[in-house]
Design a protein around this nucleic acid. Structure first.
Length: 868
DNA sequence: ACCGCCGGGTGCC
DNA sequence: ACCGCCGGGTGCC
């Protein structure tokens, strides 16, 4: 794919001269989103993975032999790794001993190896070694081994050892694994420690989480307060905290410091965690984790970094269009291109932000590596300034021999929403770890999702020695922290501190809050239906209520979940406009075959409910659905959530809501907001009529235009057909408007956003927005008014939508109007929303509700919604 | 002496 | 390895 054809594609760029964009989109990409990623979530393959449950069985002294045949050296008290070598021609029981660097030191003596082989092969225990002394020995050296495993395997391990004449010493006096820098009891070295390791108090996930929050809190007051101006090509002035971040990132990239936990000691570099030493200076990562809260401008800061620090704080040499002179080309054929990997949902945000923040006088070459016709030529990518791609493309390409992503040596690699790679077994994680480039960055607002485990992939991506190998990460950081070993958390903290910058929305720069957002007000405007509308509404309600009460008396509420949602959906639609409810009578067939409906029928009903824009939530994670799938019993969950349920309950998984059989093969995927307009798009067939809600909206819009002709607003609905109906009066009243919904192609979206954000005269003042369109990054700060046409189940979804204009860059107070029909399901929804808000506010301390609690909540909600 | 003892050769798994 | 072990050389006092 040549750059020229790429350029031709980017219509929206024409006003910006010759900046190169290339962007492709193709639906075939979605089909590559396989199940493997979810099936491997939390992979547990015996002792090695299930490390949280491991206890220390005991210790044993053995010997390492054959030192003179290998180059690997160890220090006294240095950790070593034991590795099975089943294909050794001399002994099938062979066990290799490697140092921290992975160099072989020797073998475990054969009699002992014979005892260990079975234990290791059956993953009955994890065996870890430390060489207490004898580092200078020429032929053999001692090794102190600790045996870790799950309680239930302990007997088997002890038996196996006994059969070979070995016996574990009790796990009492252990220092080095959990204490900080302490030593093994070796008869001649170190103080003795009596911490009973297996009895250490394990922190709960909650406790850990709050510890981590503190851990990041402490970072704020750090010395990372130096500021730096962006290069000329950065078109947006940076805020003080962004200048701080830029200064920090630049200093990280140009840093010559040793990585954390390394010290220089007379010609050697010494790792204080593992006691490993080597002559070669260990590389520090020229990067780190930018963990600022959402909305603080990580994207802008990253763009500034790319433009400002090409080499040694010199800016990226880019052509200045308005002058004859080119930037001085650095005579260096080193890597030039920065690779940015992000989730698909924020791809357009990046493009938009380039557009916004790169000064228009400069030409920066940007290539969007996405779509089936993406270039296979590495040199096309390496010649760019910036290459943008998604995690899924990265994963799909991984292992494909001609993938240019993995051939190019990048100047810099940036993983946006970096927590996406927290599962070490996922394809995208493996693919990310294999990218080539010295400057490596992770952007994330949530560095720790569930546990310390989540951090390993990130740290590994940053290539910090020795943590790229999971064993060393586990022994020196993860286990000490989760077992509550003294110093463990402190160790993690100093690691994080040295590579992370995190500020929250409440952080301060020089005593002033980082973000001073304008005020945000939410008004509720009640709407009264006309007599005619009310009649239709009441008749549908009466019929639905009767059916639902019958389900209650039969006790079949959850089996009819799709039907009930259907009823509620129609009522919600009727609150907006009678035409939304096209199949008011046809889809409700409760009369004849109530309890024995075909699963296919139920599923298609649910599909209809979802694709009409209903914002259902997942009963497992309680969040809005991501990648919704429908079970055979017609309940919806996020795909990752339900796969986790199936995995953990196999082989007989049951639906969390109704306990019906649950099988992967029966799950039906359901894209939200499918081409609704094409299926429901018979709008021209019917004569257009208004509705009470539309009247209320138009009245407000006209009033707004009269008072402030340039004010921009968002008109938000969950129903894209409703948005289409609103187009009509907008046209009639002469509003310039644009539209953004989930069914639009990438390039159309970008165009719509760009148009709307423009301050040019004649640019649209109204945007019709579907509630869930666009990802978190969607920036619609041009709007200062929001009209929410219909309430969502989940108040968080509404808030997220409001945040698209109430965020960094908003200069006006934001007023949000929610239209709520009086005496309707909408009013009941408001009540439920309030309850949820209260719950969420106090939720951090409380545990996750059980499946039955979720069920009961759902049932109560249904009752409340239909006035039962 | 089908032993003991000596001293050289040798050395992971 | 300044060990252990092996196997050849050797053989009263």
């Amino acid at each position: 794919m040549s750059r020229d054809s790429a350029r031709g594609y980017c219509q929206y760029n024409i006003c910006r001269g010759e900046r190169n964009y290339s962007c492709f989109s193709s639906p075939d990409f979605y089909s590559s989103l396989g199940l493997e990623d979810f099936l491997s979530v939390g992979d547990t393959s015996g002792a090695e993975e299930d490390t949280d449950l491991a206890i220390l069985y005991g210790t044993l002294r053995g010997s390492v032999v054959g030192l003179r045949y290998y180059t690997g050296i160890v220090n006294n008290n240095e950790m070593v790794a034991l590795q099975r070598e089943p294909n050794n021609p001399y002994d099938k029981n062979a066990v290799k001993v490697n140092n921290v660097n992975g160099d072989q030191v020797g073998h475990i003596k054969k009699e002992l190896a014979a005892a260990l082989a079975g234990i290791m092969d059956n993953k009955l225990a994890l065996i870890e070694g430390v060489v207490p002394y004898g580092a200078k020995n020429a032929f053999t050296m001692p090794v102190q081994m600790s045996f870790w495993g799950r309680e239930e395997n302990k007997e088997a391990v002890l038996d196996q050892l006994k059969r070979h004449g070995f016996k574990l010493a009790p796990p009492l006096k252990v220092g080095s694994e959990c204490g900080f820098g302490s030593k093994w009891i070796s008869g001649r070295a170190g103080p003795s420690y009596s911490a009973p390791v297996h009895a250490a108090v394990q922190l709960t996930t909650e406790q850990l989480k709050s510890e981590f929050d503190k851990l990041f809190e402490d970072l704020k007051e750090d010395d990372k307060t130096c500021e730096m101006e962006g290069a000329e090509a950065v078109g947006t002035p940076l805020l003080p905290h962004q200048k701080q971040a830029l200064a920090w990132m630049v200093s990280r990239e140009n840093s010559n410091d040793l990585p954390p936990f390394w010290e220089e000691r007379s010609n050697f570099y010494y790792n204080i965690l593992t006691n490993f030493a080597e002559k070669k200076r260990p590389k520090n990562v020229l990067g780190g984790i930018l963990a600022d809260d959402m909305g603080l401008g990580k994207t802008l800061t990253t763009i500034a970094l790319i433009l400002t620090n090409f080499q040694d704080s010199k800016p990226l040499p880019v052509e200045k269009i308005t002058s004859d002179k080119f930037y001085e080309k650095y005579s260096d054929d080193g890597p030039r291109a920065t690779l940015i990997v992000c989730p698909l949902s924020v791809l357009s945000n990046w493009i938009d932000q380039f557009e916004q923040h790169i000064h228009q006088d400069f030409r920066v070459n940007i290539y969007v590596y996405y779509g089936s016709d993406r270039s296979k030529d590495p040199s096309v990518l390496s010649e760019q300034d910036i290459v943008l791609t998604t995690y899924n493309i990265l994963a799909t390409d991984y292992g494909v021999s001609d993938s240019p992503l993995h051939k190019v040596r990048w100047l810099r690699i940036v993983l946006d929403e970096g927590h996406t790679i927290r599962n070490p077994n996922a394809q995208q994680t493996k693919a990310a770890l294999n990218l080539e480039g010295h400057r490596r960055w992770v952007l994330t607002g949530t560095p720790i999702q569930n546990s310390v485990k989540d951090l390993w992939s990130l740290i590994s991506f940053l290539k910090l020695k020795p943590f790229t190998d999971r064993e060393w990460w586990h022994r020196t950081i993860q286990r000490p922290v989760t077992m509550g070993a003294p110093g463990g958390l402190g160790r993690l903290q100093s690691l994080i501190r040295s590579i992370t910058l995190r500020r929250t929305k409440t952080s301060k720069v020089k005593g002033k809050p980082i973000l001073e957002l304008p005020e945000r007000k939410v008004l509720i405007q009640h709407v009264t239906l006309t007599e005619e509308e009310r009649q239709i509404y009441q008749s549908v309600k009466k019929e639905g209520k009767a059916a639902i009460s019958r389900f209650f008396s039969e006790g079949t509420v959850l089996a009819h979940y799709a039907d009930i949602l259907g009823v509620l959906l129609r009522l919600r639609q009727l609150c907006c406009h009678p035409h939304l409810c096209i199949n008011a009578s046809s889809s409700f067939s409760a009369d004849n075959k109530t309890s024995e409906e075909l699963p296919e029928t139920l599923v298609s009903k649910m599909k209809l409910v979802l694709s009409s824009g209903s914002d259902e939530e997942c009963a497992v994670c309680l969040e809005s659905l991501t990648l919704p799938v429908i079970t055979r019993c017609a309940h919806v969950f996020c795909k990752p959530c339900i796969f986790e349920v199936i995995r953990s309950e196999q082989p007989n998984a049951k639906c969390p809501l109704c306990r019906n059989e649950l099988r992967v093969e029966h799950l039906v995927e359901c894209p939200l907001e499918e081409e609704i307009d094409s299926s429901n798009g018979k709008k021209s067939d019917r004569e257009w009529i208004s509705s009470s809600k539309i009247n209320a909206l138009m009245h407000a819009l006209v009033e707004l235009r009269r008072d402030n002709p340039t004010a921009k607003c968002l008109v938000v609905s969950q129903f894209t057909t409703f948005l289409s109906l609103i187009e009509n009066p907008l046209k009639e009243s002469g509003f310039a408007f644009t539209r953004l919904d989930g069914s639009m192609a990438q390039k159309k979206r970008v165009e719509a956003i760009h148009c709307f954000q423009s301050s040019q005269a004649g640019s649209p003042t109204v945007m019709l927005l579907s509630l869930k369109a666009g990802g978190v990054g969607l920036n619609l700060t041009a709007a200062s008014r929001v009209f929410l046409m219909d309430p969502a189940w989940n108040p968080a979804a509404e808030d997220q939508c409001f945040d698209r204009c109430h965020r960094l860059g908003q200069e006006h107070n934001v007023v949000i109007t929610k239209f709520i029909v009086k005496d309707s399901v909408e009013e009941n929804m408001l009540k439920i929303q309030n309850k949820k808000r209260e719950l969420a506010a106090g939720a951090f301390a409380t545990k996750k509700p059980s499946a039955s609690e979720v069920k009961q909540t759902k049932i109560n909600e249904i009752k409340a919604l239909i006035d039962l």
